[in-house]
Design a binder for these strands. Structure first.
Length: 117
DNA sequence: ATTCTGACAGCAA
DNA sequence: TTTGCTGCCAGAA
């Protein structure tokens, strides 16, 4: 598969790929993706990459990526304050007070799911 | 080249 | 318990 030497376009592209792998109705966290990418604690980089994802095609479900609290921290980048929430609710994810309900239950960890035998 | 920022996470007080 | 600072990585000025 991918070699560990692809440092050029790896990070951002990988973030997009992993984010697209998140099933509808599920959500993941920056730290989970970061860990899957091998950056571990640099979860902030995932958010930075997702910021660029708005120019990416196809659409990257960045609304499925939240912080470890299950909070819609990135909703402010969606243009409107309700856009991210609307997208999540459209997929069956309940959001209350800018926070995902049952976050742990719908949490999708790429490090676990993609590494699953 | 150096410095700061950034949709976070972890640890200390 | 909550609040705040530091650490992390990569990109932009």
């Amino acid at each position: 598969m991918e070699k560990s030497g692809n440092r050029d376009n790896c990070f951002f592209s990988r973030v997009y790929e992993v984010t697209r792998l998140v099933p509808g109705g599920r959500v993941t966290s920056y730290g989970a993706i970061a860990r899957y990418l091998g950056t571990g604690r640099s979860a902030i980089m995932v958010g930075w990459a997702l910021n660029k994802s708005f120019s990416q095609s196809p659409f990257v479900p960045a609304h499925r990526v939240l912080n470890r609290n299950g909070l819609l921290t990135g909703k402010r980048h969606f243009g409107t304050s309700t856009a991210m929430q609307q997208l999540l609710e459209n997929e069956g994810v309940k959001v209350e007070n800018d926070k995902v309900v049952e976050f742990k239950k719908i949490f999708w960890d790429p490090s676990a799911e993609l590494n699953k035998p």
